[in-house]
Amino acid sequence: MNVIDLFAGAGGFSTGASMAGCNVAWAANHWPDAVEWHSRNHPDAAHICQDLHQADWSQVPTHDLMLASPCCQGHSKARGKASGNPQHDASRSTAWAVVSAAEYHRPPTILVENVPEFLDWQLYRPWMLAMQALGYAVSPHVVDAADLGAPQNRIRMFLVLTQSAQPLKLNLPTLDHLSAASFIDFEAGRWQPIEKPGRAAATLERVRAGRATHGDRFLISYYGNTKTGRSLDRPIGTITTRDRWAIVDGDRMRMLSRWECRSAMSFPDTYQLPDNHRLAVHLLGNAVCPTAAKSIIEKLMDLA
C-alpha cells in the first residue's frame, strides 16, 4: 500500500504506516526542521517543505492511503481558541488542504488525525460536506493511544474517510496499558536536588502532594492544573511540545529526557532525534503515536 503524509511533522503517522507494512512514498510539512528529521528517518520517501495551501498536487505520487495531521493548535483547549485570533484561524484553515488533495487524487482511503475538538470547529460541517461531495463517507474515531500500545494517555481523533456508501466503523483493540515505569531510566539523566535554592514553591507543593499519595517515586506535571503526582504504574500523561513531566526519585528530580519522550510516544528506539533537547521535544509533542497509527492502518488493511 502506497502512502503519502500531509503535515508529516516528526513522522509518527509515517512510522506507524511503515510498521504496518506500507510504503511511505511522499511527505510534506511547512517546518524545515520537521522535514529534515522526517527525511532522515524515512530516506526513501520524497519530501517537500511547503505551505500545503500552495501545493501542486499533480507533483504528488498516486497513493492508496492519504495521511493528514492538520495543525491542531487552533482547536486545542490547551492552546486556547480565542475568537478572531488570526493565528488560530490560519491554523484551522490547514484542514482545507486535505480537501484540495483529495479532490485531485481521490485515494480510496484518507486518515485525518487531530484533537477531538476538531469536531466542534465551526467549519467542520462544511469541511465534512466537502469531503462527502467528493464521495467520501466520514467516520470519527476518538481513541486513547494507551489503548493502542503507547505508554501514554493521549486522546486524539482519527477521521476515517472511505469511498463507501456508509461510514466505516473500526473495531479497534483495547490493549493492556504500558506503564510510565516501562521507559524511565533511573540510572540516567541530569538529576538535581528537590530542595535546591530557587525551586518554585508550586513545584515543591506538587512534590509534597505526590509523595503523600505515591511514595518516593512518581511523576509531576510542571505546568497546567495538575496539582498532585502521577503514579509510575500507569501510562504517562500527554507529551506536549515543551518539557512537561518531571520524575521524582526520593530527594532528587529531573525532567524527562528526549529519549524517554520518544519512548513515551511509542517511536522505536532506532528513531533519530536532534541533539537539541528543546527541538526534539517540540517535534515529538506534535507527533502522532506510531503504535496508534499502526493499529488503525492495520485494521483498515484487514477490511480492504
Rank of each mutant, 00 (worst) to 15 (best):
Q166G: 08
G135A: 07
L159R: 05
V160P: 02
V112M: 12
P108D: 14
V143R: 00
P235I: 13
R234I: 15
L161M: 14
Q192C: 04
A201C: 08
W191A: 07
F158D: 01
R156V: 02
G135D: 11
A200L: 10
T228N: 13
Y136K: 04
Q192M: 12
S139M: 06
A133T: 09
E117D: 13
E205Y: 05
T228L: 08
D216H: 10
A145Y: 00
M157D: 03
R154E: 08
P116S: 09
D176P: 13
G189S: 05
A201D: 13
P173E: 11
T240I: 14
L219F: 05
A209Y: 05
G224L: 11
A200K: 15
P116R: 04
A209S: 12
R230L: 15
T162M: 10
W121T: 01
L175G: 10
L175H: 12
D176I: 08
S139N: 06
G215A: 06
T203A: 07
Q122P: 00
A212Q: 14
T228S: 13
D233A: 15
D185A: 11
L175Y: 10
T213W: 00
R199E: 11
R156C: 03
Q166H: 15
G198E: 07
T241W: 03
F218G: 01
L219D: 03
D216A: 11
D120L: 11
T203M: 09
K169E: 14
T226N: 11
P193N: 09
N171Y: 10
D147C: 09
